[in-house]
Design a protein around this nucleic acid. Sequence first.
DNA 1: ATTTTTTTATTGAACGTTCAATCAATAAAA
DNA 2: TTTTATTGATTGAACGTTCAATAAAAAAAT
Lengths: 206, 206
Amino acid sequence: MPKVGMEPIRRQQLINATMAAIDEVGLAEATVMRIARHAGVSAGIISHYFCGKDGLLEATMRQILTDLTEAVAVRRHALEDDSPRAYIGAIIEGNFDRTQVTGPAAKTWLAFWASSMHKPMLQRLQNVNDRRLYSNLCHQFKRVMPHAEARNAARGLAAMIDGLWLRGALTPEGLNAVEARHLAHNYLDQLFAHHGCTKKASHVYR
Amino acid sequence: MPKVGMEPIRRQQLINATMAAIDEVGLAEATVMRIARHAGVSAGIISHYFCGKDGLLEATMRQILTDLTEAVAVRRHALEDDSPRAYIGAIIEGNFDRTQVTGPAAKTWLAFWASSMHKPMLQRLQNVNDRRLYSNLCHQFKRVMPHAEARNAARGLAAMIDGLWLRGALTPEGLNAVEARHLAHNYLDQLFAHHGCTKKASHVYR
DNA sequence: ATTTTTTTATTGAACGTTCAATCAATAAAA
DNA sequence: TTTTATTGATTGAACGTTCAATAAAAAAAT
């Protein structure tokens, strides 16, 4: 049913369908036909809008990274104080955002993580995102502790966040976002406490 | 060149070749022919010894899990005191063992992690291993802190270990085992210190 | 010590399947 | 009538598995 201006609609449909297919059967068996069926279109349309399957996969990863960045940005802008503790807290909250933690997105994320080891384009995307997270964390930690210590704190918290994500994606029941946030915030408190800052969390865990 | 008793030799060769192939081009492109070429044998031999490609992949994952278990066991038996701190330290050391952290093993590990989301057999293996790690950690933490707190500590440390692994596998330069162990041990120290004082951070620990 | 037979290990071409990409045909909207 | 969107059969490449053929070693026979 050809109408004009279908492009943005179809692109979004196909990206969503890609995540649904990966959630359902994994990246290895997410064929163009299965993805197309999920979107209710034919297989040929994928090459038309994304220049082939690889283009669609790349666009899907970009979407996930964009969503994550957006989730962090929203929380960052909602902050009332700009203390390091608050800023880093917003990063944690953004990383365990509902839309990110949901089944399809989480499994697609992990699938791309593994895939990015050998696909230069995905690796590049993953690296950019990674460095921004580390850089943001590092910058905030450096405001309250020596640089060497701040780097370790940033690496530790980044590992903790990724580890919680990973385990959440692998658990059949999915990630328990409440518990994950609790653990991440606790660790953050300990990082601050260890360094000697007595500022404690004003955060309320649900 | 047929000699008797080739089976254990070939099986090991093929398992090693599988890891090498996955390290080289990723799980998706680790074809039977590529694996066979790495081992210096023909493709047909894989079905002969492992009843098909899936059998070889399963055997490879089993090997990795066995190696990890062994690395932890060795360090556990070498302990002089059986304090919770020492025991958990051995788990950390075992998880960042040289043979595990090496390129091929680490990348294969991550590839299987992602794959296990949709392959029941791999998921089972991964789950058993996961639960044992958590159970061991939990048991030790419970010796020195309330049960609810011990469960959180175990979940946190497990996430930290997996997160360091994940980031190590994704980093082009590979995992910096020294740094990873340092971060994990630091976190462990903080978990113990945190428990020893009041819950909110109003003390300075050094 | 040779030769013959049996056993074991291995190969690689052939087969059937699956997949992504292509493109001429088609159908609706402009 | 022209433009835009979509289809789906077709194509060719790549994959895992199979199996008859082969070759070397081991065992048995001479």
